[in-house]
Amino acid sequence: EINALWYNALRLMQRWLDEASDQSDASRMEHAAECARDAFNRRFWNPDRGHLYDVVDREHGDDPACRPNQLFAISLPHAVLAPMYWRPVLDTVERELVTPVGLRSLSPRHPEYKPTYRGDLLTRDAAYHQGTVWSWLIGPYVDALLRVRGEDGGVRRVLDGLVAHLRENCIGFVSEVFDAEPPFTPGGCVAQAWGVAELLRCLLLTER
């Protein structure tokens, strides 16, 4: 996601410099963005898994963990990921990470996957990024769905679980996290601003 955000920042700078009639610096930003995009697609695509590496060039090699962060390479306004990879990434994310109330932070196939967010602080922290479902990640997932499949892809239905959750736990709000397996017990903050905001944004995006 850091690379995806960096690429977006470069494209935004390019646009703003264009609008300011600074063609020299705009061209420099354009070149930097193209280099970043080319390097990203060359290094992060994992053909063996059909999704993106989580981290590359680590001391012990590239990390093939399947995480939701890769959606930002598709969902941001300027997608750093080449279109030819959008559908396989989305298919993998749907198969391994999507739940009715958000996205798992790690694939269940990973040996360090934690299906529940319970216990003392240390136990919960150990599970926070290792499988626990984050509600706000429904946002980038919906953005990616709309970009890849369009409005006829049943996008609105993926929000049904969180809409139903508004009548549970803290009424009218969205919980921060959920267990990664049914019944997807909510945890963390009972009224998380980014979860509420992303659900509202997605409802507006998919409103007809």
Rank of each mutant, 00 (worst) to 15 (best):
G188H: 00
R58F: 03
S24N: 14
T185D: 01
W134S: 03
F184L: 12
T185W: 07
W136M: 10
G154T: 04
S135C: 14
H129G: 12
D18H: 14
P182R: 10
R167L: 10
D143A: 07
R118G: 12
G139N: 04
A82T: 06
W16Y: 12
R49Y: 13
P83S: 11
P47N: 02
P88G: 07
L204M: 14
C170I: 08
L81C: 09
R104I: 01
L81T: 09
G102M: 10
S107I: 08
S21P: 10
T92P: 14
M84L: 08
H165P: 08
R87T: 03
R149N: 12
L204H: 15
C66S: 09
M13S: 10
P77T: 01
E176D: 08
G119R: 08
E112H: 07
V89Y: 03
R95S: 12
F173D: 09
E207M: 10
M84D: 15
L97P: 03
V177Q: 04
R208S: 06
V133H: 00
V190G: 13
V56N: 12
T116W: 10
T99F: 04
A4C: 09
S105E: 06
V190Q: 10
L200F: 01
P83H: 07
N8W: 04
H51F: 12
L106M: 09
P140N: 05
D143I: 02
S107E: 06
G119C: 07
E112P: 15
G172F: 00
A33M: 07
A4K: 00
V148G: 09
P182L: 05
P68H: 01
T116H: 13
Y117R: 02
S105N: 00
H51L: 07
T99P: 03
Q14V: 04
E168T: 06
I138D: 01
Q192A: 02
A36N: 06
A180G: 13
P115Y: 01
W194F: 14
A126C: 08
F178T: 07
R201N: 02
V101R: 00
V196F: 05
E112R: 08
G139D: 03
G195Q: 04
W134N: 03
Q23K: 15
R95D: 14
L76H: 04
L52P: 06
W6H: 14
V101E: 11
R147G: 11
E96M: 05
V98H: 04
Y85G: 12
